[in-house]
């Protein structure tokens, strides 16, 4: 109630009104699909239990309730229209549905100007695997014969700089660094100047993990972006949100807020070598149109793969 002093009352009323609108629409849609479900008579093979199984699979893979329900209600429509009779065919249709969502998210990185370095910024919450991903990315580019410079802009977490330096050694890449606690934008400035002078092909920038709810830390990312733009036109060309494959529905909120502050252009789904399916990226693709660029599948330098939507969708049902 005190917050009205700062005008936040007006600010918060608008979204909450919109939220309510959205909620109303969603409810209508849910009711509608419920009704469709009642009307559509499924053949004996595709019964309630089959759909429940599919629902459990999708929710169990972290797609979230709204994405799952939307996908399944589309599936019902199609199944009815095409007179689908068996379960395998239904599954195939479902996979198509998911692939269509992932394919629709195809935003491209900003084209770099010839003769200047391509700048890749990695962001994400704490402990998702940013530094490890950078090491592996450096390996990818090095193996293509490109020159790479790493920028240690995580000056906050204990030994983050040392960790990146070890990856630098492993991949034969130089690391531009400052002292712990230094200004991340300052070290970014130095790295980009150095890269411009040397005409390096890629600069990969490590940032400190931060929870997307910390407004001040998110503002720091905006500042880093402005710094990058001042030195190299169009930079950062690619901003990758590194997401832990075990992340649940909070991943959506991460993607939303990091995109707001840091202009995320794609996702790296890390730690996909465990049992987590990482299905939240489907929800992210659907809501925000952000594509997955790479998946992390281990701790070795070679354990970074380009994202293959078909493999990914298959793995959801494995």
């Amino acid at each position: 109630m005190i917050q009205t002093l700062f005008g936040s009352l007006d600010e918060q009323q608008k979204p909450s009104f919109l939220d309510r609108m959205k909620e109303a629409v969603t409810r209508t849609r849910e009711n509608l699909s419920d009704r469709i479900e009642e009307v559509v008579a499924f053949s004996k093979e595709i019964d309630r239990a089959t759909l429940d199984d599919l629902e459990a699979t999708l929710i169990g893979a972290d797609l979230g309730t709204s994405t799952t329900h939307e996908v399944l209600s589309k599936l019902r429509e199609k199944a009815d229209r095409k007179q689908i009779k068996n379960v395998d065919e239904l599954k195939r249709l479902l996979k198509e549905e998911l692939l269509a969502i992932l394919a629709a998210a195809n935003s491209q990185p900003v084209q770099k100007v010839d003769g200047t370095p391509e700048v890749i910024l990695l962001v994400g919450v704490n402990g998702t695997g940013k530094t490890t991903t950078i090491g592996k990315l450096a390996q990818v580019f090095r193996s293509q014969g490109k020159t790479v410079l790493l920028c240690a802009a995580d000056t906050f977490r204990a030994a983050a700089i040392e960790q990146l330096e070890i990856w630098g050694e492993r991949t034969g890449t130089e690391v531009i660094r400052t002292k712990a606690g230094g200004d991340p934008s300052a070290v970014l400035f130095d790295a980009l100047q150095a890269a411009s002078a040397r005409q390096t092909d890629y600069v990969i920038v490590d940032t400190a993990g931060r929870l997307h709810t910390k407004t001040n830390l998110m503002a720091e990312l905006e500042k880093m972006r402005r710094t990058a733009q001042r030195i190299i036109p169009g930079a950062p060309h690619e901003t990758l949100l590194v997401m832990d494959a075990t992340t649940g529905q909070n991943g959506l909120q991460q993607a939303r807020l990091f995109t707001e502050s840091a202009g995320v252009t794609g996702i790296v789904l890390a730690k996909l070598d465990g049992t987590a399916k990482g299905g939240v990226v489907v929800a992210i693709s659907r809501e925000l149109g952000l594509p997955v660029r790479y998946v992390g599948v281990g701790e070795k330098p070679g354990d970074l793969l380009p994202f293959d939507a078909r493999d990914f969708v298959d793995s959801l049902f494995a």
Binding site: D244, T246, T247, G248, G251, T275, A276
Partner: peptide, 11 residues
């Protein structure tokens, strides 16, 4: 991690 999703039970 508090942000863990459905896989929390398995690990």
């Amino acid at each position: 991690d508090a942000m863990t999703g459905q896989d929390a039970v398995r690990s």
